[in-house]
């Protein structure tokens, strides 16, 4: 039985150590906010935070999480950066179909938590691995700048 700290709560999962964290979140714990996209860490839809760092849950064996604190899209609104991103996303209607957006929000929240005024290059470096088939990239970029300004105001 593995113990995981997710969004500030302890969860238990009876899984082997090599199961990807994403499967544990979605299939074992029923937390389906985090999405399955490609399964090979190439699209970013499964992004969660480990101690505030964005990671791709589809390629992370759950046994490697250890005592690190997991934050998912269900819990990121409780962090100041996450709340700022969610507000900016609503203000600017960033989302189109929405499938990639939990991953976009997680990567964006981690970026503005660590970078007060992200430049375009900072946004490219942090967000290029999050793919959006609807092409909402322009609004995502705008949303990040707005959220960063409000978060660090």
């Amino acid at each position: 039985m593995l113990e995981l700290s997710i969004n500030g709560e302890a969860h238990h999962a009876d899984v082997t150590a090599d199961v990807p964290l994403l499967w544990v979140l979605r299939d074992v714990l029923g937390m389906t906010g985090t999405k399955f996209g490609c399964g090979i860490a190439q699209c970013g839809a499964c992004t969660v935070h480990l101690d505030g760092q964005p990671v791709r849950a589809c390629q992370l064996p759950v046994g490697l999480v250890g005592a690190r604190k997991i934050t998912t899209v269900e819990g990121v609104g409780a962090t100041p950066a996450g709340a700022a991103v969610q507000k900016a996303w609503l203000d600017l209607d960033v989302i189109q179909c929405g499938y990639c957006q939990s991953g976009q929000i997680m990567s964006a929240a981690a970026l503005i938590a660590s970078t007060p005024a992200p430049s375009d290059a900072d946004i490219d470096a942090a967000m290029a691995g999050n793919i959006c088939r609807c092409g909402t990239y322009v609004r995502i970029r705008e949303g990040i700048k707005k959220a960063a300004a409000e978060h660090h105001a």
Binding site: A41, Q42, G44, R56, Q59, L64, D124, A125, A128, G129
Partner: peptide
């Protein structure tokens, strides 16, 4: 750099330490 940030950094990290495993 563009290809690295698109396809590589999610797993390998900018530091090269590896982001996941």
């Amino acid at each position: 750099k563009r290809v690295f940030e698109q396809a590589c950094v999610s797993c390998h990290a900018w530091s090269g330490k590896g982001a996941l495993v």
